[in-house]
Amino acid sequence: MLRMFDWSGKDETCEQVKKLLKKYPDRIPVICTKAAKTSLPEIEKKKFLVPATMLCGEFKFIIHKHIAATGSPKESMGPDQTLYLLMNNSKKSVKASQFMCEVYAAHRAKDGYLYIHYSAEATLG
């Protein structure tokens, strides 16, 4: 199994993440929340444990599903509405072909989670 990180050494990693990773050693802990000022609905569950080898494109697909499941009207999340994922800390957008473990290695927060925002396009008038 893929083990990307040695969790025992990272003191700042929060207890919750340590516990989760012990149980699911080949997963990446992600917290995905709605960006401020976007018309999209808030997803119900925000913490995810995803396979390290999952592609960012796949992760986006999952978030899309969760947003669609909130049952909001068409304009806020129809099948043609485009979703953008951005890293919370660097405001860099994710690339579809990157592995979640690569993104995690580059952008994990001190508490051990990877924080990602989802947003729609900005509209202009």
Partner: peptide
């Protein structure tokens, strides 16, 4: 980012609910 073709992500990923706020994707 240039990719050969549009990937088809299917719904093969299952969500297991571990706790009230946690989704384990497998």
């Amino acid at each position: 980012e240039v990719l050969e073709r549009q990937p088809t992500y299917n719904a093969a990923f299952d969500d297991l609910l571990e706790a009230d706020d946690l989704v384990v994707v497998s």
